[in-house]
Amino acid sequence: MKEQIMSEIVIQAPLAAVWKVLADFAYYPNWSPTIQQFEGIPEEGKQTKVWLQQPGGTRIKMNPIFLRIAKEQEIRWKGKLFLAGLFDGEHYFVLKPLANGQTLLIQGELFSGVLVPFLRKMIKGNTLAGFNLFNQALKKEVEGSL
């Protein structure tokens, strides 16, 4: 089974300014309400522990592999719950330049695995709400630093 969620926001800042905050993994604890900490600096092709906090109180530690870190374009990782195929998630941030020096942030995740139907309410509820909270916090952090 599969399920995909996505959240977008327009940030009143150039792509380079958004990337600077998004790719500064050590600084996340200072502004992000949902992605709270990276243990180490993520590198493409490697695993890095990530602490997540969902609205509603669920806090989890995951150890995803970073699939892509492309400067001013995309950050993508894939994690799993216990065993591959049970509940997997491929999370992504995509940046797109817009007119007038604005940037579109697209945050999404493709969930797959046998537990997806049982976790659909959480995915479309607290998880999607967390994406929106993160996007708003990133917008505030970037726009406030200009």
Rank of each mutant, 00 (worst) to 15 (best):
F131C: 02
W31S: 00
K20E: 02
P42M: 10
L52Q: 07
Y28L: 03
L146V: 06
I35W: 04
A70E: 15
E43H: 14
A26L: 05
A84Y: 11
Q47G: 08
K20M: 01
L119H: 10
Q73H: 14
A16F: 07
Q37N: 15
F111G: 12
S112F: 04
R76S: 10
V50W: 02
A26V: 07
R120Q: 14
N63T: 06
V18Q: 02
P42N: 10
E43G: 12
L15T: 13
F131G: 00
K139N: 01
K78W: 04
I41R: 09
G101I: 10
F93L: 02
W31M: 03
N100F: 06
T58V: 13
F87A: 09
Q107V: 01
F38A: 13
Y92P: 00
L128D: 04
L146S: 04
A17N: 01
I35M: 08
K49N: 09
Y92N: 01
W19A: 00
I123C: 09
G113I: 01
F131W: 03
K121T: 12
V114P: 04
I65S: 12
E8R: 07
G101M: 08
G108Y: 04
V142E: 01
Q102M: 13
L98I: 07
F93V: 01
I5D: 06
Q73E: 15
L15N: 10
L81N: 04
L83K: 12
K139P: 00
I65M: 14
M1C: 14
L15D: 05
P64G: 06
M62V: 15
I106K: 02
L105R: 01
L98Q: 13
E90T: 13
E74K: 14
G40Q: 07
I11K: 05
P42C: 10
F25Q: 10
V94M: 03
F87H: 09
N126P: 08
Q47R: 14
T58D: 12
I35V: 15
G101T: 10
A137C: 03
G89R: 04
Q107W: 00
G85V: 09
Q36L: 12
G113N: 05
L104M: 01
P55G: 07
F134L: 02
L105M: 03
Q73A: 13
L104F: 03
L128V: 02
I69K: 07
M6L: 14
A99G: 10
Q107K: 03
L22Q: 10
L119S: 10
L52H: 05
V10T: 14
P42I: 06
Q36R: 15
P29F: 11
K121D: 11
I75D: 03
K61V: 01
G130F: 02
L83E: 05
L95T: 06
A70M: 14
I41C: 09
N30K: 15
I106W: 01
K78I: 09
W51K: 12
E141P: 00
V114F: 14
E141N: 03
M122C: 07
T127A: 14
A70N: 15
K61N: 04
S145V: 07
L133S: 10
K46P: 11
T48N: 06
Q12Y: 05
E109G: 06
V10A: 03
Q102W: 08
